[in-house]
Amino acid sequence: MIEIENVRKSFGPLEVLKGINLTVQKGEVLTVIGGSGSGKSTLLTCINGLEPIDSGRILVDGIEVHAKTTDLNKLRRKIGIVFQQWNAFPHLTVVENVMLAQVKVLKRSKAEAEAEAVRQLKHVGLSDKLNVYPSRLSGGQQQRMAIARALAMSPDYMLFDEVTSALDPQLVGEVLDTLRMLASEGMTMICVTHEMKFAREVSDRVAFFDKGVMAEIAPPEELFGAPKDPELRKFLAATH
């Protein structure tokens, strides 16, 4: 369970998160929508402790992320994250990309790590690219590799930050299919996305962020069918 309690966060004078309260249950798929700059990415990077917070707290399985005593490197094994920008390690082949953290962080043997990497890469449909360098992959393939790399750490939670936003339109589908597959397998997920159709299909709940505030959160039928927040209505009207 991820519990976010009254989290505030500023970059200099700019308050980016203005008291966020949110709980994500095990097995839940939450999608987060909202305009650019509304604090969605910042929230995700706070959840895995990449960014500090100013006040409030975030608990992952009861462990306070920003407590001084928390071993962040250990906590992050539970939380996979895939970013909007492709970030394959360019000096490693696809299979090495997926093996690296398994060996370094989980101390798996090379053989174990490779077997797991092959399994995860097969899962996301990259079996034929194992020994290729990332520069030879399309954007969609790079994103699927990044998903496999995160999954190989056996995380309990997956955070996705607009993973299709930097892709050519014809490549968006294959990545969304991978996310759908994960959702159907019961992975606990927070997906920041601009794909409204996808959000409608896979989400248990959808949250709308507006200027650092979570303005509305509801199951998709309700949020898309009968939006209450005026900014959300505007946002939905604009994206249709």
Binding site: N73, H91, L100, A146, A150
Partner: peptide, 27 residues
């Protein structure tokens, strides 16, 4: 070395030192 790569490495649970050795040093 792009910060996005280093964030990705740290997100996988790699320590500062592991990130320096395995990602930053070679690149």
């Amino acid at each position: 070395v792009p910060t996005t790569l280093r964030r990705a490495a740290r997100s996988l649970g790699m320590t500062w030192g592991q990130d320096m050795r395995s990602i930053v040093l070679p690149l």
